[in-house]
């Protein structure tokens, strides 16, 4: 007879209770794991506050980045520095360089306005949106003005507390 069987014979009830408590602990732990699990995946529209937050962050970023005044290009450049990252930043730099070249000669003013922005995919860290953006361009030199209606697939990434636009794809 080993010491273990002796313990079991003497304190069988206590041993059983200890096993049950251990099983209960496992169950509570598993419950906690299950509660922490995200069964939704895509939180677009589902998480109302988070959806609204990324909608307005991306909308205001696009408005700032796509509005431009030849007389004062600094705010646009600043907005690009603050609000764009990754591929969107690279693409924008090319676009902006071209703009800088011809804008002063044409006295170009661009005004952007987001008609509607809907969130397609949303996680804690990234989002994809469909954005309808209007842009009006005015050339002071010949009083020429034009409006364009854009459809953009926009990717955004959250770093810390702020959303940055990382991809802008015209559809």
């Amino acid at each position: 007879m080993t010491a273990l069987t002796t313990v079991v014979r003497r304190h069988g009830v206590l041993v059983l209770a200890a096993l049950l408590v251990a099983a209960a602990a496992v169950a509570f732990w598993q419950a906690d794991v299950a509660r922490g699990r995200d069964n939704v995946g895509n939180h677009a529209v589902v998480g109302v506050a988070a959806t609204t937050e990324v909608q307005s962050a991306v909308s205001s970023a696009l408005v700032r980045v796509f509005s431009y005044d030849y007389a004062d290009p600094a705010p646009t450049q600043q907005a690009a520095d603050d609000l764009l990252a990754g591929r969107a930043r690279e693409q924008y730099d090319l676009l902006f360089a071209a703009l800088e070249e011809k804008a002063p000669g044409q006295q170009l003013v661009l005004t952007a306005q987001v008609q509607v922005a809907a969130v397609k995919e949303l996680t804690a860290r990234s989002a994809t949106l469909l954005v309808f953006l209007d842009q009006a361009s005015q050339r002071a030199t010949d009083q020429e003005s034009a409006v364009s209606a854009a459809q953009l697939s926009v990717r955004a990434t959250r770093t810390g507390d702020t959303w940055k636009v990382t991809g802008i794809e015209p559809l």
Partner: peptide, 16 residues
């Protein structure tokens, strides 16, 4: 103690 352990286990399983 055994009864308490059973109660704890039931609670744990329900919670899970």
């Amino acid at each position: 103690l055994l009864v308490l352990a059973v109660v704890a286990l039931v609670a744990g399983v329900v919670s899970w």
